[in-house]
Design a protein around this nucleic acid. Structure first.
Lengths: 225, 225
DNA sequence: TACAATACGATATAAAGTTATCGATTTTCT
DNA sequence: AGAAAATCGATAACTTTATATCGTATTGTA
């Protein structure tokens, strides 16, 4: 009883929401499980299962009402006020993030960047870039909970620990270091927990090469024979 | 019999390799399953399982020999000559990729960028940026198989189809459009298959917010009670 | 030389997640 | 109005992935 909302499912829910908002923008009112499945790369069965888990019923023959779906998804995924984040490390990747305008459309707002390099500090910029030392104060004052980490590997863990101490609870990690909250929580009554998601572009590319090599020599999932 | 190499495992194998190469650089000779597990965020049992699947034995009491592991991993993951890729779309994200120096250390080389905007074309740059129209010829001549796609969402599918037609077999997709190879392979005898990995930063951030909200109201995996 | 400690290896078990099946219901077409 | 088609909903089966257990071998120490 009481089906669980597991991680892959949460990701799908967020995708549904995006697609649905686009559909609504186009004037659609209803949607079918197989359309949604196509749109996010899942089977109709998965879509129906997901919706049933979050307690949404469609019409027996007529698909799902987009408005109701959107409302429920927003409810489940959490209030969608603008989500405020910071970017730590404003090198190539970090500054690309600062410039990435799509975030606004997605309800995400970068409120500041942080760096150690003098020449990158720019407190008056559209998105201010501040010295790393000011991070703890800023995070506390602005109640920031999520950050993107794009510093050099060598300093990744130490900067990470500092962020967790400052109150950051979720990190999108662009370094290739495996960040463990344990490292920052060695002390006794440490209640801080920090969720880390890794975005490892190099690894993804390597993996692509592996998979296409594999396909060429025909193997893995398909045609075992 | 004949354990399979599944996807999550492949990702781990690539991570092992990186860690091992660093360890070797530090002069280490042997390594234990729990150390490696810590380094990549897995349990010792997983590490041993993985190694047993790819046919590597450690010393009963003494851990694994790093050199042997590295050799075997390189063998399994495929020859590690430099992996050549292109970047399609040289806007904010695309040009960040072009500038990303870490790739070199990871054996990945971006050999060209492509774009439609006149002002971004720069055939003489360190990494040349060419008009999109030249992509098919370039891909054929240089035998490129993998590309990063960082174009605006609106043109994502059409550019993708063009790339697949040109011979691209693996795509790292930075757009928020779900790319399906089917779309590019509607014709009959279409043998082209293209593996797509999605890197959806906005989605990852949303997901982080969701997870930390969830933790705050104590639920999910831990403490069901 | 014998015993204790440790870490591997393999099998088995469990948990998670996806797909398949089947009945029910509503809409549409004749 | 009646029949057929289509899609939802729930359960169950199956596949995939991770964990746990236990035996074994090796090394170090007494």
């Amino acid at each position: 009883m009481e089906e669980k909302i597991h991680r892959p499912m949460v990701l799908r829910l967020a995708r549904y929401l995006r697609v649905l908002q686009k559909l609504k923008g186009l004037g659609f009112v209803k949607v079918f499980s197989n359309n949604l499945g196509d749109a996010i790369g899942a089977t109709p069965a998965v879509v129906r299962k997901d919706f049933s888990v979050i307690g949404i019923s469609g019409n027996k023959r007529g698909g799902y009402l987009i408005d109701a779906l959107i409302d429920r998804l927003i409810e489940v995924l959490g209030k969608k006020e603008t989500e405020r984040i910071i970017v730590v490390g404003c090198g190539r990747i970090g500054s690309a993030l600062l410039d990435y305008r799509e975030f606004i459309r997605e309800g995400i707002r970068i409120v500041a960047g942080f760096d150690v390099a003098e020449e990158r500090i720019a407190p008056e910029a559209r998105i201010p870039v501040l010295p790393l030392g000011e991070l703890p104060g800023f995070v506390a004052k602005e109640e920031i909970e999520v950050a993107a980490l794009a510093v050099p590997d060598q300093v990744a863990t130490s900067v990470f620990e500092m962020m967790v101490d400052a109150g950051i609870r979720g990190v999108l990690n662009f370094t290739s270091v495996e960040l463990k909250c344990a490292a920052a929580c060695d002390e006794e009554g440490c209640q801080q927990e920090c969720t880390v998601h890794n975005v490892n572009i190099g690894l993804e590319i390597e993996n692509l090469f592996y998979l296409i090599r594999l396909k060429r020599s025909s193997a893995i999932t398909e045609s075992v024979e």
